[in-house]
Design a protein around this nucleic acid. Structure first.
Length: 461
RNA sequence: GUGUCUAUGGUGUAGUGGCAGCACAACAGGUUGUGGUCCUGUUAGCACCGGUUCGAACCCGGUUAGACACCCCA
């Protein structure tokens, strides 16, 4: 029992000493990060469960890459002119001066792992999923945090458009399972491939188009122009938008292969019954994408927050030092999904509810209660007792707080008689049963299907 | 990185220059071994620093923190 200081019996000296030290909460979370409290964990647990279930159905296996990697892993893959790399990474040096970075997204680490562990020797494609926290130094706002959870799926080693379609459908299915699919609309685009007459030609023409017009661009865009001209297309500044409308369109530059690929993908999506909006302006802020890019956008907020997105990255494995290997993947923001679930009033099932409370009176009863509670838990009944509380009254008050349907009460009389009281908390009725039959009786009341059991060896989520 | 707004017990709030209130929560009681409802009590607050004023939670300046939006993304 932890010693509790009763404020009423505290001396004046103690009080003032304590007060003089108390200047608000001693510590609080750093900017942009937050505790996941038990109520929110019910959402997290549920989402993870759905993701695992759907991923397994499709043959994906889980991977966890480290929380930090050598900074180059991200610089090389994401691209050093991107917003993420140029201003949003948590980069630090370790004690030997190596540059390390907290992962701002999941794909780079997975690709690094694929290469490091020679996964090209596995049957292709390799299908991996992750559920991990990520980190970006960004100004926090609604649905945007400096540490945020993403689940993501990656398919490495297959170039068929049907893979893209299946992956998008999988994402959509997860959103359906979570009851929020209707909230989102798929935005999709193709940004071409690295073939000479495809994106490279487009990029050159785009730069030529902007040549001499730099003065009309915003500061950021004129800086981006030489290295990352694609981004100019979705700049929201008024002057940039006007120019972007007149600029060459990627769709006119797609090589025959990309054009066919994208056409197939749209057809397959239609076949799967997934609504989409073709969006020329969708470029995405990571350099490694090729061909397919997509995002799921919140319908209610117009062009606001994306709940998830991804695309094909056929060039990335080579950039990271592997053989040319096609791949496609996506990631989704768990906090943002939860926000939507709450807004839609989605209730998640919880397993935290307690079945039975054991109240006791007297040392002998307490001793017996410990044994009984062990037995109750062994058969899968979620059981709590207020072992530290003295009066029966207080114990039942605690029981009420847990909203338990049944209480087992044992006092001196019951221990002497070898009995126990089972109280129905809702009806306020109770009966005396033989101690040996308590577990059986409570099980009957709760129902076998509600027991929380675990057999060693059984696969749990 | 830019902008807007906000800051009163643990939570939600009232208080427009004159004693900081209420509700919820928490804790303790309401006499024998029975919870919820009810009653009583207790704990606990003006984010910080400075200025104006006889007097500041309130007006002014700054700091810090937070929220929201832009940007970007999840």
């Amino acid at each position: 029992m932890t010693p509790q200081i009763n404020p009423n019996t505290m001396t004046d000296e103690a009080k003032t000493a304590e007060e003089s030290q108390r200047v608000g909460p001693p510590y609080q979370t750093a900017k942009g990060v937050h505790d996941i409290l038990p109520d929110d964990h019910e959402f997290f647990t549920y989402i993870k469960k759905v993701v695992r279930h759907r991923a397994r159905q499709h043959g994906f296996r889980r991977i966890t890459t480290p929380t930090f990697e050598f900074t180059d892993v991200f610089n090389r893959s994401i691209g050093d002119t991107t917003d993420i790399v140029s201003k949003e990474m948590y980069t630090f040096q370790d004690r030997k001066g190596r540059s390390l970075t907290l992962k701002p997204e999941g794909t780079a680490g997975v690709v690094r792992s694929y290469l490091q562990h020679n996964m090209q020797t596995l049957p292709q494609p390799v299908e991996l999923y992750y559920i991990e926290p990520h980190f970006r130094y960004d100004r926090p706002q609604k649905g945007r945090y400096r540490q945020f959870w993403q689940f993501g799926l990656e398919v490495i080693g297959e170039s068929d458009s049907a893979i893209d379609a299946q992956l998008i459908h999988l994402f959509y299915t997860v959103l359906q399972d979570l009851g929020v699919a209707d909230q989102f609309k798929l935005q999709i685009n193709s940004i071409g491939c690295s073939a000479k007459n495809c994106r490279p030609k487009f990029v050159v023409d785009l730069q030529n188009f902007y040549m001499g017009k730099e003065r009309n661009l915003c500061e950021e865009c004129s800086y981006r122009l030489p290295k990352n001209p694609l981004r100019l297309l979705d700049c929201k500044k008024e002057d940039c938008t006007i120019l972007a409308k007149l600029a060459p369109q990627m769709r006119n530059y797609l090589c025959p292969e990309c054009k066919e690929f994208h056409g197939e993908l749209l057809l397959l999506l239609k076949g799967l019954g997934i609504d989409y909006v073709e969006n020329d302006k969708l470029v995405r802020g990571l350099d490694y994408y090729t061909k397919t890019v997509f995002e799921f956008w919140d319908k209610s907020q117009g062009a606001q927050n994306a709940i998830g997105g991804g695309g094909r990255y056929d060039g990335l494995i080579e950039i990271m030092g592997g053989l040319p290997t096609p791949a496609v993947g996506f990631a989704a923001g768990i906090e943002r999904i939860i926000e939507n679930m709450k807004a839609c009033g989605v209730k998640v099932p919880t397993k935290d509810d307690i079945h039975v409370f054991v109240a006791q009176l007297g040392f002998n009863a307490k001793q017996k209660a410990l044994l009984l509670m062990r037995e109750l838990r062994e058969v899968g009944l979620k059981t709590v007792g207020a072992l530290g509380k003295g009066a029966i009254k207080n114990q039942l008050r605690v029981a009420d707080r847990f909203k338990v349907p049944y209480c087992v009460i044992m006092g001196i009389t019951e221990v002497r008689d070898g009995t126990a009281i089972i109280r129905d908390m809702k009806r306020g009725s109770q009966k005396i049963v033989k101690y040996e039959t308590v577990v059986e009786e409570v099980m009957k009341l709760i129902g076998a299907e509600n027991l929380d059991t675990y057999t060693p060896g059984e696969v749990l989520y």
